[in-house]
Computed example of a mutant assay.
Amino acid sequence: MNQRTSRRFLVAAALSALACLEPARARAGDAEACFTASEEGQRLRDEGRLREARARFIACGGAGCPDLVQSDCAGWLTDVTARVPTLILSAQDEQGHDVADARVTIDGAPLAARLDGKAVEVDPGEHVLRFERAGSAPVELRLVVREGEKLRRVSARLARPGAGAIPPREDRDAPSPASALFLPIALGGAAAVSGVVYAALGLSARADADRLRATCAPRCTEADVDAVRAKILGANIAFGVGVAALGGAVAALVLRRAEPAAPAAATAVHVLPLPGGAAAALGGRF
């Protein structure tokens, strides 16, 4: 073998060796990229940047990564996917009709170019959503999104610039006049019922007393006398309750007319049985 042939042989052997080393170097580079994606995904997950973490776990869970890395990343991917919150965005015009031609940004970054009713993914945490639509004043909403919160509905009312503000929820939920009359009506009804009970027990007690005077007085049994006394006591209590309830109804009406914007007064009726009758008192907090 001459010198030229020997040199060609060495060059060919060197090239063959380099060709064999290239796949090994490529595989080493792929493995390093897999480990890097795995570490970055865990860091992003712990920082609450779940959507970015999911992209890293998808990368390190691919077929080109080592089996151990694939297994870990697949488990983390399942966990992160379940924790990513989703929102359903909607907007209405001044008449309350749904609008689709509105765009939404989150913390200044684009989130939805159009409201199509589909859920959008966001990271957990405190965010500022800004709804914008041509011809309408922009609306900003602040909300705290929680991990694992799915299909949360977020809506905004878009009005023309300078249009009147929408009444606050407290005004829309204010009690109606009918509900404001509930207390006077209830107290008036209690007064009427008490009056009927008072009349019935009073008449019954008088009839029993007249019967005892005609038949056994003054040697009537204690049980017969106690029965009459019980009816008289019940009649007196009913009378006291009726008077107190009637006074409460009148007071509630007067207070409602004098202070229509004030909170409803709290009124209580107290009845104390006394020997031979009862005492009634009307209390209120205004």
Rank of each mutant, 00 (worst) to 15 (best):
A192T: 14
A235W: 09
A235T: 06
K118Q: 13
L274C: 01
R83W: 02
R142L: 06
E147G: 12
A238K: 12
I232H: 09
E32L: 14
L151W: 13
L143C: 05
P85M: 05
A251V: 13
T5N: 07
R285F: 05
L158F: 12
A190W: 12
T267Y: 06
E40N: 11
D123E: 06
D123F: 05
R256C: 02
T86E: 02
L68A: 14
V128G: 00
L246R: 14
A37R: 02
R229Q: 11
Q42D: 06
A100C: 00
D226C: 01
V225M: 12
K118W: 03
P218R: 02
C73P: 04
A251G: 07
L187K: 13
L274I: 07
G276R: 01
V154A: 03
D46S: 15
T267H: 04
V80P: 01
V241P: 00
L274P: 00
F239M: 05
E170Q: 09
L115I: 05
L158Y: 11
G240V: 05
R229M: 03
D224F: 00
A190L: 10
A235K: 03
I166H: 00
V120F: 10
I88P: 00
P260I: 13
R257Q: 08
R103G: 02
G234P: 04
P110M: 03
V250F: 14
V144R: 08
G135R: 09
G108S: 04
A200C: 01
R114V: 05
R83C: 01
D173W: 15
A214P: 01
I237V: 10
A74K: 13
F286K: 02
A205H: 10
A178P: 01
A156G: 07
P175T: 06
G189N: 12
R146Q: 07
A159D: 01
D46P: 02
V11D: 02
A207P: 00
R206F: 06
S176M: 12
G202S: 15
E32Q: 14
A186L: 10
A17E: 02
L158S: 09
G75K: 13
K118D: 05
